[in-house]
Amino acid sequence: RELEAFAERFKQRRIKLGVTQADVGSALANLKIPGVGSLSQSTICRFESLTLSHNNMIALKPILQAWLEEAEGAQREKMNKP
Rank of each mutant, 00 (worst) to 15 (best):
S38V: 14
E70W: 04
G73S: 10
M57R: 01
R46L: 05
A29Y: 15
A7V: 12
R1V: 08
P62G: 05
C45P: 05
K32T: 13
T51W: 02
I58W: 07
F6H: 02
G35D: 06
H54T: 15
M57A: 06
C45I: 12
T20M: 02
P82D: 13
A29I: 11
Q21A: 09
F47T: 01
N55I: 07
F10K: 00
K61L: 05
I44R: 00
A59K: 14
N30H: 14
R13N: 06
N55C: 10
K16S: 13
I63E: 04
M57Q: 05
N30R: 08
Q65A: 10
K81I: 07
L3N: 04
G35S: 04
G37T: 08
R1G: 09
E48P: 00
K61T: 06
E4M: 14
K16F: 06
S49V: 01
E70F: 05
A59V: 13
K78F: 12
A74E: 13
A27Y: 10
E48G: 00
V19G: 02
A74T: 11
V19F: 15
L64Y: 06
L17C: 04
N80S: 14
I63A: 08
R13Y: 05
F47C: 00
T51N: 10
E8T: 08
L64E: 01
A7D: 00
R9H: 12
E4Q: 10
K32V: 11
Q41F: 15
V36S: 07
A66M: 10
L52T: 02
V24W: 01
Q21G: 04
A5T: 08
L17T: 01
I58P: 01
N56E: 14
L50P: 00
K11C: 03
A74D: 10
Q65K: 09
R46M: 15
N55W: 10
E69C: 05
F10I: 01
Q65Y: 08
K81T: 13
N55K: 10
L3S: 03
I15F: 03
K16N: 13
V19C: 07
K61I: 15
L64T: 01
W67G: 01
G25D: 14
P34C: 05
P82K: 09
E70G: 09
E48H: 00
E2H: 05
Q65F: 07
P34T: 11
R14G: 00
E69V: 08
Q41A: 14
Q75N: 09
R46E: 14
I33R: 05
K81S: 11
A7G: 02
F6Y: 07
L31R: 12
I44E: 01
N56F: 06
E4P: 03
I44L: 06
Q12K: 10
E8K: 06
S38A: 05
L60F: 03
L3E: 04
G18K: 06
S38E: 13
R76N: 13
I44P: 00
N56T: 10
R13V: 08
L3V: 09
T20C: 12
V19E: 03
A71H: 06
S49R: 08
I63G: 04
P62A: 03
I63F: 13
H54L: 14
L17R: 01
L52K: 00
T20L: 08
T20N: 04
N80Q: 15
E2Q: 06
L68Q: 02
N80W: 08
S26L: 11
W67E: 01
K16R: 14
A29T: 06
F10H: 00
P34H: 06
M57N: 05
A71C: 06
E72L: 03
E77P: 08
W67D: 03
L68V: 08
L31Y: 14
L50I: 06
C45G: 10
I33L: 13
H54F: 11
E77D: 12
A27P: 00
I33P: 07
L28F: 07
L3M: 10
E77R: 10
N30C: 03
L52G: 02
S38M: 15
M57K: 00
G25F: 07
K78I: 10
G25V: 15
N80D: 12
R9F: 05
I58A: 14
L60A: 03
L39K: 03
E72P: 03
Q75L: 12
S53D: 06
E4N: 08
A66H: 12
S53N: 07
Q75S: 13
A59E: 10
R76Q: 12
G73V: 15
E69Q: 11
K61E: 11
K81D: 10
S42L: 07
I58V: 10
G73L: 14
W67P: 01
A5I: 15
E48D: 00
A71Y: 03
E8D: 06
S53P: 13
N55H: 09
K32E: 13
K61C: 11
L17Y: 03
L52I: 02
A59C: 09
E72G: 04
Q12G: 05
G25T: 11
T20A: 09
R13Q: 09
K78W: 12
K16G: 12
R1F: 13
Q12Y: 06
E2M: 05
S40L: 04
K81Q: 10
R1W: 06
R76Y: 07
I58Y: 07
T43W: 06
K61Q: 13
G35I: 15
A59G: 07
K61A: 08
A66W: 05
L50M: 14
S26F: 11
I63D: 03
V24N: 02
E8G: 09
G35Y: 01
I15M: 12
N55R: 14
S49E: 14
H54R: 14
E2R: 04
A29K: 13
L39N: 04
A5H: 08
A22K: 07
I15G: 04
F6R: 00
G25M: 11
K61Y: 12
I15D: 05
E69R: 07
